[in-house]
């Protein structure tokens, strides 16, 4: 039983990877869109969900990742371009976070808002690096000397990176640094009283979250093959924040569920509209549903979709006679030491 639990997540990933190989291009595109958004959301969730710092600069940080990966990839760095992108975003995240170390909550949020706008401006102005407004054209990512172009291959790669990011974060939250983050989120004074170096803990959060975001940004670059300033605006930051809220802040399943929800909702509404031949009416409804759901979740279920899922699983398993636990239960019931759900 215990081994099954441990293996459930990798098995789930493996199945998704194999399944995405059989999908058409459109389906595979959706898979890598969701996977990449989930990597970004995992990064943000570390900062916001586990360390209590809300950030509106996520869109710009993804941009830093995409531009760095694009430049390095075009220069022939191969897979190292992704690592480089992570490092660049981590440094940027640190540069935003350091001066804001003594700011809390609201003021930190406004500081990141300022950072978002300043970075957007830099994307447009630093022509030698970003190619300005017309955008940086990015060569396909080269893995072992072969270009990765198909959406199916990109989906598999994105899923692999998502699994890596997830596993790393699971490990991190079990270390002392991870536990310190949770205490800082709850109360900085208490953390200080316990002898935790608050500043250093926050710096860890900024760097780690930035690195993971940079990896997501790199994959955005390699899938769209064009990094331009219009793609990394504030609305992308808002989307990312919405993902962790709808999914469930500070939960493990949250970023996955939130990313899937935010990326797939417009498509679902669009298809429904077409099926009933009212697509033109529904064009506006898409955003309305988005706004309304954010409000409703925050009002009635602050733990988001992951709490709903948990309830659903509990309800289903109460219907089942035996003690068999489904794979889903395992995924939605992670309880390592230091888990914020406890």
């Amino acid at each position: 039983m215990a081994t099954l639990r441990k293996l459930a997540v990798p098995i789930l990933f493996l199945v998704t990877m194999l399944a995405s190989l059989t999908l058409g291009r459109f389906g595979a595109y959706l898979v890598h869109s969701v996977a990449i958004a989930a990597i970004g959301a995992l990064g943000l969730n570390l900062l916001t969900g586990f360390c209590g710092q809300i950030s509106f600069a996520q869109g710009a940080l993804l941009g830093v990742g995409a531009y760095t990966a694009g430049n390095l990839g075009n220069a022939g760095w191969g897979i190292w371009a992704i690592v480089g992108a992570g490092v660049a975003s981590a440094m940027t995240s640190l540069a935003i976070g350091l001066p804001a170390l003594r700011l809390r909550g609201l003021y930190y949020a406004i500081a990141t808002l300022a950072a978002q706008f300043i970075l957007e401006y830099l994307f447009k102005i630093l022509e030698p690096i970003t190619n300005g407004i017309s955008g940086l054209l990015i060569q396909p990512l080269k893995l072992f000397g072969r270009p990765v172009v198909g959406d199916q291959a990109l989906a598999v790669l994105s899923l692999a990176l998502l699994l890596a990011a997830y596993s790393f974060l699971r490990w991190l939250m079990k270390t002392n640094v991870g536990r310190a983050m949770l205490i800082v989120r709850e109360n900085e004074l208490v953390a200080k009283g316990m002898g935790i170096d608050v500043a250093r803990t926050k710096i860890w959060a900024f760097v780690t979250s930035g690195f993971i975001t940079g990896v997501a940004g790199a994959m955005i670059g390699f899938t769209t093959r064009l990094a331009n300033p219009e793609a990394f605006q504030l609305s992308l930051s808002v989307d990312q924040v919405a993902m962790i809220i709808v999914g469930g802040q500070g939960t493990w399943a949250g970023p996955f569920l939130g990313a899937a929800f935010v990326v797939l909702l417009p498509e679902a509404i669009q298809r429904t509209g077409e099926a009933f031949d009212i697509a033109r009416l529904l064009f506006a409804l898409r955003d309305m549903a988005f706004g309304l759901l954010i409000i409703l979740f925050l009002l009635f279920e602050p733990r988001g979709l992951s709490a709903l899922l948990r309830r659903l699983v509990r309800w289903v398993s109460s219907l089942l006679p035996s003690t068999r636990t489904s794979v889903l239960t395992v995924k939605s019931h992670p309880s390592p030491p230091g888990d914020p759900n406890e």
Binding site: I54, L106, V238, D287, F290, G291, I294, I295, L298, P302
Partner: peptide, 24 residues
């Protein structure tokens, strides 16, 4: 009793809602 951040996000949701409403 909700955290500041959650309330901030609710107003952000309102902004999206209002825009969609006027658009519709």
């Amino acid at each position: 009793k909700a955290p500041v951040v959650a309330v901030m996000m609710v107003t952000l949701g309102l902004l999206i809602l209002f825009k969609a409403f006027c658009l519709a």
